[in-house]
Design a protein around this nucleic acid. Structure first.
Lengths: 191, 191
DNA sequence: TTGACAATCTAGCGACGCTAGAATATATTG
DNA sequence: CAATATATTCTAGCGTCGCTAGATTGTCAA
């Protein structure tokens, strides 16, 4: 019975198109332009069809965010070069994190600002959400006793830098200075 | 001509009532419940009246945020006790900051997450916005060469801790541990 | 061929921010 | 005091949103 399988495939494909459209529109015009009507037009189906794929609009944002967590984790892992010193690793991951945040502002917003219905720090936390944390923990571990807490704090600092700069609260020109400072602060922990 | 002055007073009073209503509703039910219709009902005037006080809804959020910056600055200043050691001062200000963020989540959201139309890091930045930064700079200065950059980084760390914890990304039970870590990191700068 | 079931669409509900233009109150002038 | 000009405020409604009930269409099994 290949028919039902073809249908399942088509459904999956349609869902991918919804998420891709949401992501594309968000990056180009902001999340306010990502409306159910607009997405329906994009995939050439009526609006109620979207609700057979996602419970509500937030869930669509969540699907985009989930992709984002996977991509952020990949970028952080790529920043971990075995030849680097521990301090360079911290700086590299910090820089990669902020590069991601500023290169994909709408994606970052979906991941950390908008309501998404995603669950964190729980047993059912998806893999994508854990991997980014893992990459940060890797570079923080050499400097810390309590790796989890130190990684949470490191992550918070990066997130704060991204958000405050994005909202115009701190000076964009001094981003590199602040990263250097973060690196110094982290490396100061082990002394 | 006391009449026009009475009118001006009444207008000002009405504006205060709008901002107070917005703030109260936001803290009780979230910013999504702060609608123009709801505020109009609250002050017992029709909706268009609100637009004679504020350009749009964002500006109302901004007015609430501005109050918040004043109150945050006051709390941070209150945390600076002359008898404390430099390290205790950092810890005290950090704790006060997070206490504020968690005690008034809607206010904090208005100040740092929602669009408000407020200007930052510019010549026309209102006093309230500068004072909080000043209080943080005061406790960071003893540990830093470049006080502004170090304060921006300290602030970012606090903001990140507030946001990530609020969104369930990091463990609430370890808040104090993270503050201790921040303190250690800051004090490690001067060595 | 018919009837059951699933997939999809049309149409619309209630709520939103915001505004044009009417109505009302207040001040100014003849 | 009456008439006019000027603020002030209101009624009514536009276009948009997320979301859904119920009609309609398509697809299978009996």
């Amino acid at each position: 019975m290949g028919i039902s399988e073809r249908k399942a495939r088509e459904r999956e494909e349609r869902e991918r198109r919804i998420v891709l459209a949401a992501r594309t529109i968000a990056e180009r015009e902001g999340w306010a332009s990502v409306t159910i009507r607009r997405l329906a037009e994009e995939i050439e189906f009526s609006q109620p069809v979207l609700y057979s794929h996602f419970q509500n609009r937030d869930a669509i944002v969540g699907a985009v965010a989930l992709e984002g967590f996977g991509e952020l984790a990949a970028m952080l892992r790529a920043a971990i070069q075995p030849s680097s010193t521990p301090k360079e690793l911290v700086e590299g991951v910090a820089t990669a994190y902020l590069d991601f945040a500023f290169a994909r502002p709408a994606m970052y917003e979906a991941m950390f600002v908008l309501p998404t219905g995603l669950r964190f720090a729980r047993s059912d936390t998806p893999t994508q959400l854990r991997e980014g944390f893992g990459a940060m923990a890797t570079v923080i571990a050499p400097f810390s006793q309590d790796v989890d807490t130190a990684t949470e704090t490191f992550w918070a600092a990066l997130h704060g830098l991204a958000q405050l700069e994005r909202h115009g609260r701190i000076r964009p020109a001094f981003r590199a200075h602040r990263i250097t400072l973060i690196m110094q602060m982290v490396s100061g922990l082990s002394r």
